[in-house]
């Protein structure tokens, strides 16, 4: 697609401005640069960012309307140094292993790719299990969805994040399955790149969530 590099540059309309760009005769495949699935995933992540922006907007608005925050009843319930810190570290590590998997498949190292993607997949599942366990602990301390705005916002934000982690784990599972079936190479691994982008996004959301819910005074 040699014609694409200049076809992508925008020119004025009308022959006066743009007629010197001769029409290329190449076919209809995608233009160069970023591939369709990856662009699609980036756009999808954009929409997800806006989804979480809505939730965060609601969170900060609710938080601003209630004082003290957290309410006295739940003053020490969300402890940033507890189990959740380990879960956070696990998710961050999984992002690293995910990137290692991408790097591996980019240079065609299928073995390293499979190893890292498996680790990522397992770490994702571990995170989910830890979050569920953490929920059960919080339930035991009386922090539930209907325990006032504090509980509602906490479980809504972390719950939707958990659902996204679950979605990411499924994506990783598909990548893993296809990898086991012998797919992906240094040239063809859009699905890996896309899943990895999504996984990083989920990771970043969690870091923001952790900071806001646990660390923000």
């Amino acid at each position: 697609m040699t014609a694409d590099s200049h076809a992508l540059t925008t020119t004025g309309h009308g022959p006066a401005a743009g007629a010197d760009h001769g029409p290329a005769t190449a076919g209809h495949e995608s233009r160069g640069g970023i591939s369709n699935p990856i662009l699609g995933m980036l756009l999808f992540i954009t929409s997800e960012v806006m989804f979480f922006a809505g939730l965060f907007g609601a969170y900060f608005s609710t938080r601003a309307a209630h004082s003290p925050w957290p309410p006295d009843k739940f003053a020490g319930t969300l402890n940033p140094l507890g189990l959740i810190l380990i879960a956070t570290i696990i998710l961050v590590i999984s992002s690293v292993t995910c990137q290692l998997a991408v790097n591996a498949i980019r240079r065609g190292d299928r073995k390293a790719f499979m190893r890292n993607i498996t680790v990522t997949f397992i770490l994702g599942i571990v995170f989910l299990i830890m979050q569920m366990y953490d929920y059960s602990v919080l339930f035991g301390e009386g922090l539930t969805m209907d325990a006032g705005p504090f509980g509602t916002t906490y479980f809504t934000l972390t719950g939707f994040h958990g659902a996204h982690v679950f979605g990411g784990v499924i994506m990783l599972g598909v990548v893993l399955y296809r990898g086991t079936a012998g797919q992906f190479s240094a040239r063809h691994h859009d699905a890996v790149e896309a899943a990895s982008l999504y996984w990083h996004f989920v990771d970043v959301v969690w870091i923001i969530l952790f900071s806001v819910l646990y660390l923000l005074p």
Partner: peptide
């Protein structure tokens, strides 16, 4: 659509949580 629709999705989700899961939004 890409920037705005997810935002109403979040509002609808919160309304749904309010209605069905005892939310306080």
């Amino acid at each position: 659509v890409l920037m705005a629709t997810p935002v109403i999705t979040s509002a609808l989700m919160m309304l749904f949580i309010d209605r069905n899961y005892g939310g306080h939004f």
